[in-house]
């Protein structure tokens, strides 16, 4: 059966179904249950925006609230995963990753390789990304590309409830560490989601809209903005392919190349800062691999190279939106 549910509930459902399937799976986080042993009601939080609410009630001590000490509990998640207990650990905002970075960068990511391929680390680190909720400079960043840079980590960033559920289930079943980036701005958006568990394989981009004039390649919170731009462009007679990458590592470059070979024009968009992000990566790969298909220089759409400002007016100016994508398409069609 397929219902309309929010992206947030789709993630909750994936966690719920996997917790039911695998009795060894653990969840770590801060206030992931919330209110355990606090004197009042239990399970009132479910993490800071309520994604895991209800799981403690169903799975009890397998949902473990940790102190706000990311280095220790994320590292402990790596160690537990290495020792046969798969873990989904939550680092509430990707901005907090600095606190536990070594455990991911030098430990989780490298063990399998350093130990001659013997280690398995069935770990998912859930974390929220992106601006748009007036969270200011330390609760709004889009640091996905920092993680795609590191061999040994997989990086996921869904844009729809359907993908969020299927990719989360795949991430949990994967035998290596996965950084699962949740676009918090899209938590409440709803879409069709099948009730039965399903996994979406990594490394398969999704053609979210089909056209023939230009390829708009993006992921996460930029996908609805790209679709909005494409809808408006269609009114002016320009038909765009919109490609949702879904997983950033592994990256389905084949789907991107196929699209660009058809359209001859590439607009790559990322909400991240403009240097060394997913857009620059896509442009580099496309330019290298199908240079002769290009009818015009590829265009990029990103946030400016500044921290995320608090002022709602400045934040709105900061976040790249449909308008910037349309402008890029207009440039490339000229």
């Amino acid at each position: 059966m397929t219902r309309h549910v929010s992206l947030k509930s789709a993630i909750n459902e994936a966690l719920d179904q996997e917790m039911a399937r695998d009795p060894k799976l653990l969840i770590f986080g801060q206030d992931t249950a919330g209110g355990v042993d606090a004197g009042g009601e239990t399970d009132t939080w479910g993490g800071v925006l309520g994604v895991t609410r209800g799981l403690y009630t169903r799975y009890g001590d397998r949902v473990i609230d940790a102190p706000p000490t990311e280095m220790a509990y994320v590292g402990a998640a790596v160690g537990a995963a290495l020792s046969g207990f798969p873990v989904v650990a939550e680092v509430p905002f990707i901005d907090f990753m600095g606190v536990c970075f070594d455990q991911l960068l030098n430990q989780a990511a490298k063990m399998r390789y350093m130990f001659g391929g013997t280690a398995e680390i069935p770990l998912v680190v859930r974390t929220m990304v992106g601006a748009g909720i007036n969270g200011a400079a330390q609760h709004s960043q889009m640091l996905t590309a920092m993680f795609t840079h590191i061999p040994g980590l997989k990086v996921v960033c869904p844009s729809t409830p359907h993908d969020a559920k299927g990719l989360m289930i795949e991430a949990i079943r994967d035998r290596g560490p996965v950084i699962f980036c949740e676009p918090k701005y899209l938590y409440e958006t709803t879409g069709p989601v099948a009730e039965a568990p399903y996994a979406i394989p990594f490394g398969q981009a999704h053609l979210a809209r089909e056209g023939h004039d230009v390829s708009i390649v993006t992921y996460g919170p930029m996908v609805p903005r790209a679709l909005e731009a494409a809808t408006q462009l269609a009114e002016t007679g320009i038909e765009a392919d919109v490609i949702d990458l879904r997983t950033l590592s592994p990256l389905d470059i084949a789907t991107v190349l196929k699209s660009v070979q058809k359209t001859g024009r590439l607009v790559a968009a990322d909400e991240a800062h403009p240097r060394c992000n997913m857009a620059t990566d896509i442009v580099a790969q496309v330019t290298r691999q199908c240079f002769t298909s290009l009818k015009a220089a590829p265009q990029m759409v990103s946030a400016p190279h500044t921290p995320v400002p608090f002022s709602p007016v400045l934040e709105k100016a900061y976040i790249p939106g449909a308008e910037q994508i349309m402008a890029a398409v207009t440039r490339i069609m000229a």
Partner: peptide, 10 residues
Amino acid sequence: YAQSTPQHRT
């Protein structure tokens, strides 16, 4: 409290 978590749990 730390958010909803009581002192003795952190």
